[in-house]
Design a protein around this nucleic acid. Structure first.
Length: 487
RNA sequence: GGUCUCGUGGCCGAGCGGUUAGGCACCGGUCUGCAAAACCGUCUACUCCGGUUCGAAUCCGGACGAGACCUCCA
């Protein structure tokens, strides 16, 4: 397929857009860092998963066979290295008076639910950290054997200094270890680490840890970053195509993954590193600690105090697709309202295609419109440009509908199928479900029929009374050329 | 403090050396009993100061402002 060869991806590793050349022709291996399930994912978390869903969908659309692995972190990571050694899941478990795996199960059910609501395609596999303890231990052993890690007191640390003699620590994030030093040193005064930049691969268990595993170094927990190395290696191999995640994982998480892979297998695990940018609220990153977050379900149900009304998942997804995945995106009420109207214009246009009258020839260039869809997405998954092109197509459709342009039958079929492909399969949007309340429908038919009679009789008082009364009940009546509709 | 990113019209948001981004709002028009809706059209911006260039929102330097990472984080 021609378009497969024109795809360009921005590689965080090189800082440039590169032609995408998969390691194995026609196959793509993609790993994305998933959520830590100690609480319900917020909208910012969802944006990253939605963006990688877009990427997954477009790769599939291009005809690649994609193996998409997104992990679930169900082993708590130590919250910090400055003395407080409580893990995030254990902490949630204590607060909610549950077992750790109960917490994970509870939030995973919610997470799976959100994926359906936001129309995310399920990954090929969603492996869990706790299901791969053995694999993690084996990789740690290999790193030790290669001389890039050491064990102290039941814990194992990555030997950054030793590693830097053979590899470039900071290759992804551009960080220089020397520059990190001053700030961090004081925090780790009593640390077991030999060097401040060393990070834990295995952590000795605390007496009150809820999750403890056996290892060659004694009972303990896996370190911060090793799970992703273990699971990506297991399902995709030592070297695969794409590794993705949120921008905030670039350092240290992804940098350390690279170090672990190089330290055990001698190579960077992924050819292309992709980072999705953050979701902002009023110019600031959405995060639990800032308190400026809301849950993906709250905004659909209209129960967050940040917004006056509820928005359908489709609209939210469309809104996010209007910004490029590598840009930050500001969530504001006016922007969401704008997206809602824009999306409905787009779907109205699409619904119009099948009703168009066809002509012998086309006055519009359908091939170049369709080509622009591919050009947009091939340029590092530029969904905003794709959407602009779709709007352009809608304008043409409306012109044809108004008799100011023509389209041939074959062009109509092409445009219809490609617009469907891009809007639904690639962008993952679905046409908003229309009202089909079986009890309300006949009532509305009756009421609108009565109103139409009044209008025919020029009884404006009655017809407006019906319209206003319905409006008060939340039903909007629209008089169009083809008759009256309601919603 | 260190590293890095960004500053686009009323709002959101593309563009990354020369060509209309797009959506929403506003305004004008078509349609309509009126209204709404729908459709068409209009609106021409790049924080500031220097520099490079025939030409800069786009490259370079500086100022100011905002944000991210350096600690769990999508």
């Amino acid at each position: 397929m021609e378009n497969q060869k024109n795809l360009q991806i921005y590689n965080s590793l090189s800082g440039k857009k590169e032609i995408f050349e998969p390691l194995h022709e026609n196959h793509v291996g993609m790993y994305v860092c998933g959520p830590t399930l100690y609480s319900e994912p917020h909208m910012g978390n969802m944006r990253t998963f939605i963006n990688f869903d877009l990427i997954y969908r477009y790769l599939l659309h291009l005809g690649f066979k994609v193996k998409y692995v997104r992990n679930i972190t169900d082993a708590g990571h130590i919250t910090n290295s400055a003395g407080n050694e409580e893990d995030s899941i254990g902490k949630a478990a204590r607060l909610e008076q549950m077992q750790s795996l109960e917490i994970v199960y509870k939030y995973n059910v919610k997470f799976q639910d959100l994926q359906r609501i936001y129309n995310l395609l399920p990954p090929s596999i969603e492996p869990t950290a706790t299901g791969h303890i053995q694999e993690q231990i084996e990789i740690i052993e290999q790193i030790i054997e290669n001389g890039y890690a050491y064990s102290v007191n039941g814990s194992v640390y990555f030997d950054t200094k030793r590693y830097m003699q053979d590899f470039n620590y900071g290759i992804l994030s551009g960080r220089k270890v020397d520059e990190l030093e001053n700030e961090t040193r004081s925090l780790n005064a009593q640390d077991e680490k030999r060097f401040f930049a060393d990070f834990a691969l295995w952590k000795k268990a605390n007496a009150d840890d809820m999750q403890i595993w056996r290892s060659p170094w004694g009972n303990g927990n896996p370190g911060w970053h090793i799970e992703c190395t273990a699971m990506s290696t297991k399902y995709l191999g030592k070297h695969f195509d794409i590794h993705g995640g949120g921008m905030d994982l670039k350092f240290p998480h992804h940098e350390d993954e690279i170090a672990q892979s190089c330290g055990s297998f001698g190579c960077n695990p992924a050819k292309y590193w992709m980072h999705a940018n953050m979701l902002n609220v009023n110019g600031q990153k959405m995060s639990k600690s800032f308190g400026n977050y809301f849950l993906p379900k709250e905004i659909i149900e209209g129960t967050t105090s940040l917004f006056k009304k509820a928005y359908p998942a489709n609209v939210l997804r469309f809104f996010m697709m209007q910004a490029h995945y590598r840009s930050t995106l500001d969530f504001t009420e006016t922007a969401l309202d704008a997206a809602e109207k824009g999306f409905s214009r787009l779907t109205d246009g699409l619904n119009l295609i099948e009703k168009l009258t066809v002509s012998e020839t086309s006055s519009i260039d359908v091939n170049s419109i369709v080509a622009s869809f591919y050009t947009a997405m091939n340029d590092d998954f530029n969904a905003p440009i794709l959407i602009a092109s779709l709007f352009d197509a809608v304008r043409q459709i409306n012109l044809i509908n108004d008799g100011n342009a023509t389209i041939s039958e074959s062009d109509k079929d092409l445009l219809e199928s490609e617009m469907n492909n891009f809007l639904f399969d690639v962008l993952g949007l679905e046409i908003a479900t229309t009202n089909n309340d079986s009890k309300l429908n006949p009532v509305m038919d009756l009421v609108l029929d009565l109103r139409q009679q009044a209008r025919t009789n020029k009884d404006w008082t009655t017809s407006d009374k019906i319209r206003d009364g319905l409006a008060a009940a939340g039903i909007v009546v629209k008089d169009g050329k083809e008759g009256t509709t309601w919603s």
